[in-house]
Simulated scan of single mutants.
Amino acid sequence: ILENRAVSGMKASDIQKILNLKHAWEFILDPDVIQFPSTLSLLSVLAAMINEGFYINGGEIRSVPVSIHGSAYIPPLPIKSVVLESISEIIEAEKPVIEKAIDLLLYCMKTQIFIDGNKRAVVIFANHLLLSQACGLLTVPEEKVDRFKTLLIEYYEGRDTESIRSLLKEYCWQTVD
């Protein structure tokens, strides 16, 4: 897909999601964009790119209820001023950049700011922050995906907020020496 070759046995929507991810990654790696601050505006652009071909207003703060597959947690409707303030507080906190990136990741995932594609957009957004500060990348290794999903649901439901942070920092954060 990434090399523009035909792929048999895949749904067109899955191919579109992969291409959207590719475009979003290319976007944040642009030298001008990497220098841009990690803000709700940037996250909204990423969400619009992630949702292209699926939702016309995919980068707008959602105004309808959503549910999260596998979780009893129902995120309340996000309020733009609260989201702006929360993201700013996370970015401006006096803590290491990796801690900020993890806080951004978890806050935005739990808030479910957009109608769809939140996890995909937020992973790229958190990585924008890390890359802009030359602090590595956050990627969930394939062998940790199931554990990550389980811990994320526990985080959403307020049962365990620290285990997912530990997993992200210990197994998902990659630095370049």
Rank of each mutant, 00 (worst) to 15 (best):
S13R: 09
S13D: 11
D14H: 13
I15L: 09
K17V: 10
K22Q: 14
K22M: 10
H23P: 09
H23T: 12
H23G: 13
A24H: 03
A24T: 08
I28S: 09
D30G: 10
D32P: 10
I34G: 12
S38R: 03
S41L: 11
L42R: 01
L42K: 02
G53D: 07
F54E: 12
G59L: 01
E60C: 13
S63D: 15
S63V: 13
S63N: 15
H69K: 14
G70T: 06
G70S: 10
A72I: 13
A72W: 09
L77W: 00
L77Y: 01
V82C: 08
V83G: 09
I91R: 05
V97M: 08
K100R: 07
K100Q: 04
K100V: 00
A101N: 03
D103K: 01
L104K: 02
L105V: 04
L106W: 01
L106R: 04
M109I: 05
T111Q: 13
Q112D: 09
I113E: 02
D116A: 07
G117A: 07
N118A: 07
R120K: 03
A121T: 09
A121Y: 04
V123I: 15
F125D: 06
A126R: 02
H128T: 03
L130A: 04
A134N: 15
A134K: 15
C135H: 12
C135T: 12
T139V: 14
V140Q: 07
P141V: 01
P141L: 00
E142C: 07
